[in-house]
Every structure is written in structure tokens, then in C-alpha cells.
């Protein structure tokens, strides 16, 4: 019976990785859509948002089923507890990807889209954090998330830089307000994606070591 449980737990872990990869792709494409004005990428993200929600519900149901039927302990319990928290963070990152895609589409449709390479730089940092947090989960390797505090600081710093740039542009011409408001919102979404990657990293650290940490 325990073998069946561990097989089910491995399958559940696989589902979380699948959900994580999907959301990573959504975030990656939403950033490309916004930075380059790529409508195809934006549409792809919107087409897949329901799949992330479906996996969220499916994983939650299966995790609760394993808890109820097997009363797992120690490392098994920590893995399931981590999964239940992680999927919320992953799902939120998926929602940010959807919001970024919507912002990209709004700008493209209003004809006010401008290439925004800075968003690509910020997006790259956020996406790498999300990928590394998921890889840490998949491989139980907490070394991958050891520098998350400094990476998160870097994201915060980038957002403040963009804020200053955006304010300057908006002051220069009211015609820039719509564009740079979107720009600031997307920077905020990416910063929040980094925060959610940090939350995933904290939970993975607990899963692997049994010790709780806080990434500030």
C-alpha cells in the first residue's frame, strides 16, 4: 500500500512540475508579448490560462486525497504541505502572466505600443527565479534558491528604476501616460512574480530540510 502511495506522490510531483512549466512558459511569452508587441504570444498565454487553473484544482484534490487516505508523515507530509502552498503561488504567477498579456494586447490595440527592452531584462530575472524555484522543488536542491534574497532585491531595484524613468516620461508628455502606466503595472507584476518565486523557495526549503526560512 505504501508503494502505491509513493507512486501517487511521485505522480503528484510530476503534475506540479507540469503546472510549473506551463506557467513559466506563460510568463516567458507574456513578457515577450509586452516587450515586443507580439500578439501571437499574448494570445497563446490567454488560451492556456484555464489549463493552469485546471491543474491547480486537480493537484489540490489529489493532495487532499493523499492526506486523507494515507496520513503521510515526515518528508512525505512536508512534500504534500509544500505542494498545497506552491500551487497557489504558481497559479498567481499564471494570473500575472495573463495580466501582462492583457496589458500588451490593450497597448497593441490602442496603437500606443513601443518596444520595451527594459521589461525583457526584468522579465528574465523573474522568469529565472520562477524556473529555479521549480527546479529546486523537482531536484530537492536548495542551493538553487540560496541567492533569492539578492535576486529579489535586484528586481525591486529595477522596478524603482523603471518608476523613475516612467515618471520622467509622463512628465515630459501627457501622451505617454497610458503607455507608461501599463509599463509600471507590468513591472509591478514581474516584481510580484519574483516575490511568489521566493515564497515557493521558502516552501521548498522546508520540504527538503524541515526548517522554515523567510526570504525578505
Amino acid at each position: 500500500m505504501r508503494n502505491k502511495f509513493h507512486a501517487d506522490l511521485d505522480a503528484l510531483t510530476g503534475d506540479v512540475i507540469e503546472m510549473g512549466n506551463l506557467v513559466c512558459n506563460m510568463l516567458d511569452r507574456s513578457v515577450t508579448a509586452f516587450a515586443n508587441g507580439d500578439r501571437v504570444m499574448a494570445d497563446w498565454v490567454l488560451e492556456h490560462k484555464d489549463e493552469a487553473s485546471r491543474l491547480d484544482s486537480l493537484i489540490e484534490d489529489e493532495a487532499l486525497r493523499l492526506l486523507v487516505l494515507h496520513q503521510p508523515m515526515a518528508g512525505d507530509m512536508r512534500r504534500i504541505a509544500t505542494i498545497l502552498k506552491m500551487i497557489t503561488y504558481i497559479e498567481r504567477i499564471g494570473r500575472y502572466a495573463k495580466n501582462i498579456s492583457n496589458a500588451a494586447i490593450d497597448l497593441m490595440e490602442s496603437g500606443e505600443h513601443k518596444p520595451m527592452p527594459q521589461i525583457s531584462f526584468m522579465g528574465a530575472v523573474a522568469i529565472e527565479m520562477v524556473r529555479d524555484s521549480l527546479m529546486a522543488f523537482e531536484t530537492s536542491n536548495v542551493k538553487l534558491v540560496e541567492d533569492f534574497e539578492s535576486r529579489d532585491d535586484e528586481l525591486d531595484r529595477m522596478r524603482y528604476d523603471y518608476l523613475r524613468t516612467a515618471l520622467a516620461e509622463m512628465k515630459a508628455c501627457a501622451c505617454n501616460v497610458d503607455t507608461y502606466t501599463s509599463y509600471l503595472m507590468v513591472a509591478r507584476y514581474l516584481e510580484r512574480c519574483g516575490d511568489n518565486a521566493c515564497k515557493i523557495a521558502e516552501k521548498v526549503h522546508y520540504m527538503v530540510t524541515g526548517k522554515r526560512i523567510e526570504i525578505r
Binding site: R2, A74, G75, R78, T209, G210, K211
Partner: peptide
Amino acid sequence: IFENPSEELTERYITGR
């Protein structure tokens, strides 16, 4: 013991491995 045992043997026993 049941959340985070120190010994690998304990972990394996209580997780049924």
C-alpha cells in the same frame, strides 16, 4: 520525529520506505 526526523532510518520507517 514525525515532521522532521534527524535520522534517515527514522524517516524511512515512518514514511513506510
